Simulated assay, not measured.
Amino acid sequence: MHPEFTPVSFLAALSLLLPLPSQWRARNVATLSIIAWLFVLNFVYGVDAIIWSDNVNIVVPVWCDITSKIIIGSTFALPAACLCICIHIEHVASVNRGRTLLSDKRTRQLFELFMCFGLPMVSMGLHYIVQGHRFDIIEGYGCRPATYVSIPAIFLIWLPPLVLSVISLGFACASFVHFTRRRSKFAHHLETSRNGLTTFRYFRLMLMAVVEMIWNIMVTSYTLWFVAMDVRPWTNWDDVHWDFSRIDLYPAAFMPKIALTNYYLVWWVVPASTFIFVAFFAFGKDAVNEYTACMMWIRQNVLKRTNERTAPNSTPLTEYVICSQH
């Protein structure tokens, strides 16, 4: 049905390996969580596209139980991770560094762990409140979470990610205000704050978070508009969860065109978000320097080749350290 889905999904997943080593060494929990969530989502989308490319057969129900919850958690995890990034860069740019407990790196990491992984797990549990049945299988797309579209569902599932995105933009705006107020000494301020950020890295983080948040607001608003057309009344728990074990199947031939268009547009959100993230982190000057150093280390230690200007036994220590951590 959509032969491009599988290669695009796996290519997006593999592209996330490019920024992984540098982010792992930096122990940046928020960006690592974005990599983790996007990698898992792309992998799930790729597998689903293979299994259900032209059918709605119930072949791996446990897989669907797990992945449908992961999809719910990701809608919270990605805006929460960007919020953590925006809070961090706002704090770094702030004159008063001691006004929040996030100044302690370990405390900040624990906070980010909760926001990026704890909060999504909570959302997975809360989803059961508005989960009308086990899950759906859509031809060409695979497993998707089943949600009883109602006012409680809007407040539990779709509104919180939108709020997180708006708050993130607020912190990003505050960061930009801090920069404009002390732009002449901003680079020196970043250097003395000992956070490992240069002016370029600072703006790259802020721009990435802003772009991802604007993108997320657009997608979430569109999704909210689409589901709002079919809001049903919340009666009681028994009615909403009646016949909970059923699995609804949606062959493409029997689905309205507007629904198919919506699923197609929403599917592209994950790989598009992935490529946006990779564009910001995988092609910067520092990343290119790492790739060059890694290639040099492989050339000298694996292929046993040396440059004419380099003695055979004089492998640069910095290149070895960089690549040995990959």
Rank of each mutant, 00 (worst) to 15 (best):
A253P: 00
V266Y: 08
H178F: 11
I34E: 02
S9F: 02
P316S: 01
L224Y: 05
W24S: 12
I66V: 15
S221C: 06
C323G: 02
V278K: 12
A26L: 09
A93M: 10
Y320R: 12
I129Y: 11
M124S: 02
W24F: 12
W37N: 00
C143P: 09
I217T: 09
T198E: 06
W237D: 09
I276P: 10
K69F: 05
W234I: 03
W237L: 08
R27I: 03
W234Y: 12
V219F: 13
P19W: 06
A49G: 05
L18I: 15
N195E: 14
C64Q: 07
N301T: 15
L162Q: 10
F280R: 14
E212L: 13
S74P: 00
K105L: 06
L17S: 12
K257A: 15
C116L: 02
V44Y: 02
D243V: 04
A272S: 15
L317W: 03
F43V: 15
E319S: 04
P145I: 08
P152I: 14
V8E: 00
Q300N: 13
R305Q: 15
M121N: 02
P61S: 00
E139P: 06
W267D: 01
I298D: 00
C294A: 14
V278T: 15
I322H: 03
V211S: 08
S74I: 03
L102Y: 04
I276W: 08
I35G: 05
I298C: 07
E319G: 03
I66S: 00
R201M: 10
A12G: 04
C64N: 04
T107N: 06
